[in-house]
Write a protein that binds this DNA or RNA. Structure first.
Lengths: 122, 122
DNA sequence: CAGTATCCTACCTGATACTG
DNA sequence: CAGTATCAGGTAGGATACTG
């Protein structure tokens, strides 16, 4: 496992340059709604409606497109049950859980420090 | 130090809800250019021009506003030297370095997995 | 319930030019 | 060098209505 940025650059110098796949994934994962949906799903499997309520402020349009993107990246698994009324469940894949293992410490740090950061004297 | 999402929610149930400071900081830090500028600065102190070249694809406008936001959050320190021609250096603050300590493992993971994620069979 | 479809606006962004 | 100013355009994103 790589830990430092230097290690990273040593192995892949083009990382984070324009057009690099890293950028694309980064945009999906780090985008405003991507993170929040992923955090929502780290609570466990959720249905569409639950997710919509839990990720406060997200519009149906953004929830739909965010979920599709994350599913396309292999981070989220969608399971539809052929019932009436329809039931669809979303969950993190193994890859998604692996990602969140790295993401949650960061989220926790942000949550702990956010107030202090915004209250600072200008 | 908190590690799990459950711990986080137990202490602060409103975290990640709309209007919460966490959201604001998250948008700054996780936004497309925020991350890339921060990653750039984890290589060490850099001048405006260096940063502009290193963060490939960023416009001057976005670099300026991103730096101001991050400086306002206390993550980046700007130092101007009264010289001609002017020299200005940007560096991570202690807070910023603390953040990057959590962020870099995540970035490394993304860099390692990005290709596989985008190549997956549709 | 779990989404699409449609419309509309704000802001991100690039290009260009200019300043201290 | 290190920015700011201005303008044009494209697109991310919000609100609302509708469907299987």
């Amino acid at each position: 496992m790589m830990v430092s940025l230097a290690d990273l650059r040593a192995e892949r110098p083009d990382v984070f340059s324009d057009g690099c796949p890293t950028r694309t994934v980064l945009d999906h994962v780090m985008g405003k709604w991507g993170v929040l949906v992923l955090v929502g799903l780290s609570d466990g499997t959720q249905r569409w409606g639950e997710l919509r309520r839990n990720v406060t402020g997200i519009s149906e349009k953004m929830l739909a497109s965010t979920l599709k993107t994350l599913e396309g990246d292999g981070l989220v698994r969608r399971t539809a049950y052929p019932e009436v009324p329809p039931r669809v469940e979303y969950a993190l894949t193994d890859l998604g859980q692996d990602l969140m293992e790295r993401m949650l410490p960061l989220m926790a740090w942000v949550a702990e420090n956010a107030d202090a950061m915004l209250d600072r004297p200008k």
